[in-house]
Every structure is written in structure tokens, then in C-alpha cells.
Amino acid sequence: MNKERVVTPEKMFPEVPEKIFLFRSCTGSMEYPGTENAIKEVMKSLGIEIVMDPDQTCCSGYLLTCSAYKPEFSLAVTARNLSIVERHGLDTYMFCNGCMGYNLELAHIMHEHPEYKQMANDVIAKQGYHYEGKTEIHHVQELWYRLKDEIAARVVHPLNGLRVAVHYGCHYLAIQYNILDDAGYPTFHEEIIEALGGTPVYYKERQMCCGYSVGRGFTHKETLVQPHLYKKFKSAKEAGVELMTTCCPGCNTALDREQPNLTKRYEEEFAIPVIDIGQLIGLAMGVPLEKLGFDANTIRMDGVLKKLGIGKGDNHDN
């Protein structure tokens, strides 16, 4: 454990919040609306109220690394978004690694350099916003890890030893301060999967990047992303994986949508369904299928659902 950066879940959440602000993610809402929905259902089941705000814009994460790196813009956008959360008096929870990483980094910069915070506030003051820096930024998975036991107690469809692999995504683990778990060898997702009754698989390329970040999925699909993902999926396939979970809708897009292309290009079958960890928790906790939105997945979940005894389109708990 890298002692300085890593915090224990008890320290991160001395008290479990009753009400949280859920930060909308561009990719999450558009590509996999099921993820957002599943998270809302899981939180409801755990007794945590969710607040959202239509005034909140894109996190500006893409911009930070797409040659539009201008401190003024990104800082102003972050300050504006976080000031909206502060108006509700809550802490910010993201379900996308990208949103979380960028917001955390920019909030940290503003915290360390008050002149940047002042500059951002000057820009957004004209629209009537003010960012104080009080709201804390978290990923929903951190809350889930903290509430691992409560989740385990609410499982109605145990995963029966289903072989699940995890893709953590880079922007969560590589943040340089205040994260849960060790970036060198993370295990908290695997522990959640065990709590749900699954078998976590530690495949060789588990910590590998998905390659889609900052638009490479558009601009470098054949040259960079596909060979990259091929290596990752080959390693997962060899380890015998039935399902893959992730905690970033961006990564989810890459991993899910590229598999048919990989199958065609490399003439090898790649058909591992990829869903968000929130959806998996929802599934295990008995959230009805139509609320989990698996229709958005390119690689069908039918095989997995059948194995778990949850029929496709079936509204009842089996």
C-alpha cells in the first residue's frame, strides 16, 4: 500500500452519507443510460437519496487533454459545476473515472493555488456562481466498497461463482492523492465481486488501459486501440472470464463496442460482456432487468443472465 496516498474506506467515509449529488457523465448518459439508472436503483435500495441537477455541464475532461488545455476554461467549468453541487450542500459523486479524475485534479489545483480559484470565481461570478471548495469529490464505487457488507446482505441473486474480471480504468487509480486502494495492485473491486458471490479473476493484463481516452477511440481506432484491446482481451479469454465489469462508461464503451471489430479483424471470437459494476450490483440485488438497461450492450448479456437463472425480459425474481 502506498501509505501516503491510500486511505481506508472508514477514513474516507467516517459517516455514510444519506444524500449525495450524482454527477452526470456525457458518455455514461448517452452510451449506457442503464448504468446511471442502475446506480440510482442501488442507492435507493441502500437508503441513500440521489440529487441531480440539469444545470450541470460536461466535466471538461476531454478538453483538458485535447490540446485545449487552458487553465482558465477547465478551471472555470469545474468551479461552475462544483458550485452547483455546493448549492445543494452535498458531496459530489461521480460514476465515471474521467469525470472524477479531472474534477479531482482541478479541484486540487484550485485548492493549492488560491489565485487560480480566484480567477475561476471571477469568471463564473458574472453568471452568479461561486465556488468555495467545500464539496468533496468521490467515485460511487468508493461508497460501495465502504458498504460492502450492506450490499452483501441484500443480494438476492448470488452470482454462483461466476467468473468475473475487473477493468479498473486508468484515471481512477493514477490519481496522485486520496484514493482508495493501491494503484500498484488494486483489489477492492474484486472484494465487492466476492461479496456478491462471484469469483474474481486476476488476469495478466488486468491493469491495462482501454486506449479510448481523449478521443483516441475515434482518431486511432485501427492503429492503436484495436491492437491494444486485442492484447487485453486475449489475456482475459485465456484466463477464462465470463463477464467483465468496469467503473468508467468511457472504458465500457471501448471494451464493449470494439469486440465485434476485434473478432472480425483477428478472426478470433471475442464475446465477453462488459457492464458497469453498478449494473452488476443491481443485478445481484434484484433490480428488475428493464431498469438495468442491458439492451445498450453490444455484446449480449443473455448467456450470463441465463447462467444466473435470471431470464431475459423476465420481470420476476427467479
Binding site: M1, N2, A183, G184, Y185
Partner: peptide, 11 residues
């Protein structure tokens, strides 16, 4: 050396 999770000492 378990501080270096990437080397897997202790794992």
C-alpha cells in the same frame, strides 16, 4: 517491499 504493489511482494 509490499509498498510496491506493482511488484507483487507478498502477493
Amino acid at each position: 517491499a509490499s509498498v510496491y504493489g506493482e511488484y507483487g511482494y507478498g502477493i
